[in-house]
Amino acid sequence: MSPSRLIGRIAAHTVLAAGAVVMAAPFVWMLLTSIRPPEEVFGAVFDPIPSRFAGFENYGQALTASNLPRAMLNGVIVCGGILAVQLMTAIPAAYALARLSFRGRELLFALVLFGLTIPIQVPALPLYIAFANLRLLDTYFALMAPFFLTVFGLFLFRQFFRTYPEEILQAARLDGMGEFEIVWRIAAPAALPAIAAFSVFSVVAHWNDLYWPLIVITSSERATPALGILAFRDAETGGNYGALMAAASLITGPMIAGFLAARRAFVRGITMTGVR
């Protein structure tokens, strides 16, 4: 290797490593503090490595002295419910948009494109009023319903189904399959990579969401993970940072683990959103 290229490589690694330290610092600090004994958190000396392992007390407190387990369970229920309805409605509709000709198809697709630009904050007010009048505030349904519609999923799956070979669909029809069977037995299995990518997207988004749960949820029994950590922090102000960091680790851990497991699907999903 020539000297100039070696210098270039060292410079690149220096810049990247410096950036990586900043990117990773909060995670490292969070994990270190979560196993740090309380007396050290408030100590004047900053020794990054905890003097003794206090993980059991901190994580134990995070799990028992709060509604965190409940919030995480709620997160699973809400994310699962949202995803199930999203897939059940978006997959057939996207297939219809991509492969069937029916009245109003162009209009529907125009609405999907329009919907892509509208975040939840826009219809939030009327939806809130509606839920309030129906006495549905502070329910799982209120948490999930606004997200049953996924224009993003519709768009993503439509793009995927458009590339699916027409011959296979024709062959299935000749074999006597109806359109319903074609969707769920031919098209959906072929779309598994797209479905996986979308699922990661959907779950991460709703696990992490704060705006909508903050509006419709008031009781701690219905708190989502984001609300759970917020409540824990407010209750613990000035209190036990070790337990707070343990709680943060517990909330964000599943998403990071999920991302690491489904990294390829996630990255592919991102690149499918329109860049490529």
Binding site: F27, W29, N208, L210, P225, A226, I251, T252, M255
Partner: peptide
């Protein structure tokens, strides 16, 4: 991918 509320707390 991390939960921004949690990381903001950190």
């Amino acid at each position: 991918t991390s939960t921004l509320v949690a990381m903001a707390t950190v």
